[in-house]
Design a protein around this nucleic acid. Structure first.
Lengths: 338, 338
DNA sequence: TTGTACGCGTTATCAG
DNA sequence: CTGATAACGCGTACAA
């Protein structure tokens, strides 16, 4: 394990002081061009890279941001995260991604880990987090932004969309098609405000028609294709059979689609299915999914901007809402005559 | 931005020296239980977390490992990465994930960034990396392991499977079904040894039958559903039309499936399609994909083990190959009688 | 078992 | 524009 070259090695080799090397690296404009060139050359020759720990210690900044997401195993957060990462990279910053597995305790642990790594700011998914998490963040004035969520009066900086209103919108669309026997497959709502809001949105829409989402018509399950398939299987076994299944996300909807196929039902003739999130998958399954498009990349970009400016000390604790829209494809049709 | 509590704060509050606090944190067994309790209490009360930079600086270890993957935007690496992360977490270590976007230059950059962060080891995908990357790693004796790849005589520690042999196996299966008009949709092989090996494997199988993969029958494209769809569309426009399309991964295959549907072709009656990787998606598209199962999670776990032991100084520079198997589902059928 | 004191690599302050 | 030098927070010989 050879020792890495240090700033001192560079200084020696270029015949200047370590202070000057540091300046060349951080504020090149404050160094005479001639000196700068010598240093740059030495850096290149030695393959020198500043030691991250040393830098963090001395400057108390890391130019690093953290994100804690529930899981990498489904594609839901991938696009937004990628955008976040790209936007940060463009500003020369790095993104550290950690996962919580939808477990609040593990999330707190990951937040703590990121803080001890000296991140300059944090992205969290959604609004429901342990009070210890909020406490940690506020106690030390750590910039953070909640993404994937937005609601009127959200007390924290957030960038997202109104999950409840969006779910309501797609439910209304389903009702407009004449469906009255409606079921829903949702993610586990406990500790997941997005899932919860989507359920509430569906209930809102049903209530207007004097309908309700009966307990046996609502299955909460983990977000996976297989779970979606199983849940739909259960729902389809009941009588009367639902004519439409609203899903809390596209992954669940794709699973439901496969259950419908297995049950010999035609979608959308016998059964309508809707998704949520508009991930790539939703366009390519058969039939293609009617779903809610959410602005993945814009959320990521905006979160990056907010974080960067907050880290610079510019206080811009705003909440930003993006609009969603319904993507009409083939999995939603009129309720069967019957 | 409140200052974080330091080890000194903890020491003061518990009436011991900083050295003792450090010992409580790192080698608790060397501290009297009574003293230990006082310190632990103080740590809890202050919400103290060791400063990462300081620790890295003093100990020259970070208990952190890095992985550079091409992209998070498709699900291919998600499962393996998750397993890697979990296995490392179990050992108290952290995983840093960076993406290269299939760009060698960006990859080198990310490796450099991870090194300067003081990672104790590195995971890279595949075998083809810039010589600068290998040089950096070897110059400083940094433990690393290549995953997702394996071949006889691989000169570096790796854990994966034989992409070429696996591709050959599924191609043989296709030939066994009587197909002779065979096309392939591959990822970009330039700088991607897995993609390249899979092409070679297919060629191997065809050669045995005296067939070859003609240039117009091989499309290399980026890994996305949309790209797969487009490529298949092109291939299907030619005459004679291929009766089987082998895809370099499941995402491409799912895209191809959707193109076939759009063209009014029945799979597998008119056209057979095969995938590679056996990601969740492959079981849920319609028809379900015949594909090659690769041991995502076992690769992740094993890579973690190798890295951890290498970081402990135990030199175990071995290559490990897992077996793959063909998953027979519905997208592959006999060649049409014609 | 515990405390003292030094060094890790970098940045920032202050002179020059 | 540049150089000395004092932090920064922690681990660890060494001494007690």
């Amino acid at each position: 394990m050879k020792p890495l070259p240090t700033i001192e090695d560079v200084a020696r080799r270029s015949g200047v002081s370590t202070a000057t090397v540091s300046r060349v690296l951080n504020t090149p404009e404050r160094v005479r061009a001639e000196t700068r060139d010598k240093v740059v050359a030495a850096v290149a020759e030695l393959g020198y890279t500043p030691h991250f720990g040393g830098r963090a210690l001395a400057s108390n900044r890391t130019n690093t941001f953290g994100a804690v997401i529930p899981t990498m195993e489904n594609a839901i957060f991938a696009r937004g995260l990628q955008a976040l990462q790209e936007a940060l990279a463009e500003a020369g910053a790095t993104l550290l991604v950690a996962t919580s597995g939808y477990d609040p305790e593990k999330e707190a642990q990951q937040v703590r880990a990121l803080l001890s790594r000296g991140v300059d700011g944090l992205v969290l998914i959604g609004e429901s987090h342990g009070s210890d998490v909020y406490e940690m963040l506020e106690r030390r004035g750590m910039p953070f932004v909640l993404v994937w969520t937005w609601r009127p009066d959200c007390p924290y900086p957030c960038v997202g969309f109104d999950n409840r209103a969006s779910a309501r919108a797609i439910a209304e669309e389903v009702l407009r098609q004449g469906h009255r026997e409606i079921a829903m497959i949702s993610g586990i709502s406990q500790g997941n405000d997005r899932a919860e809001a989507r359920i509430l949105g569906v209930r809102d829409a049903l209530a207007v028609e004097g309908l309700e989402l009966r307990p046996e018509r609502l299955i909460e399950t983990k977000y996976s294709l297989e779970a979606g398939r199983k849940a739909a299987q259960e729902l389809l076994a009941e009588t009367p059979r639902p004519t439409a299944i609203l899903c809390g996300n596209d992954v669940l909807a794709a699973g439901a689609l496969s259950a419908a196929r297995a049950a010999g039902l035609s979608v959308p003739d016998d059964l309508s299915i809707t998704g949520f999130d508009n991930i790539d998958l939703s366009a390519v399954v058969s039939p293609s999914l009617t779903t809610v498009n959410v602005p993945h990349r814009r959320m990521g970009n905006t979160a990056a901007r907010m974080l960067l400016s907050a880290a610079r000390g510019e206080t811009a604790d705003r909440c930003i809402a993006f609009r969603t829209e319904i993507v009409r494809r083939d999995s939603l049709g009129p309720a069967p005559a019957n």
